[in-house]
């Protein structure tokens, strides 16, 4: 198990326990954390699970992959620390991960 904290655009926080091997997107959906749409169900092809990785975690989560980048590129709100949460898999290393949610999913 590992913990991940979602910080809503409003500032509200939700911390949930997830099994390692599960994506951050799925952690949000399974725990009814608002702010993640995940229209495509984790195929890296809709960009509606956009999160901003908290600065101290950017190195550990790593950068976006090629397909992920091409999807993120279409988002006018993209930041340097933007990721699609379906592409971040929880591991012991990421226990305590903090991600912020954008105001809107596109």
């Amino acid at each position: 198990m590992a913990k991940v904290t979602f910080i809503q655009f409003s500032g509200d926080q939700n911390t949930v326990d997830v099994d390692t091997g599960v994506s951050v997107m799925k952690a949000a959906i399974d725990n009814l954390v608002p702010g993640i749409d995940a229209d495509c169900g984790g195929e890296c092809s809709c960009a509606t699970c956009h999160v901003l990785v908290s600065d101290e975690w950017v190195e550990k989560t790593g950068g976006a992959g090629e397909q992920e980048n091409s999807m993120l590129d279409l988002n006018p709100d993209r930041e340097a620390n933007s990721r699609l949460s379906c592409q971040i898999t929880m591991s012991e290393d990421l226990d305590g991960l903090v991600v912020k949610l954008p105001e809107f999913q596109y």
Binding site: S70, D73, L74, P76, E103
Partner: peptide
């Protein structure tokens, strides 16, 4: 990508 980026903000949430 270049052209889509120009018009997509009009339908942004």
């Amino acid at each position: 990508d270049d052209q889509r980026r120009v018009v997509s903000p009009v339908v942004a949430p």
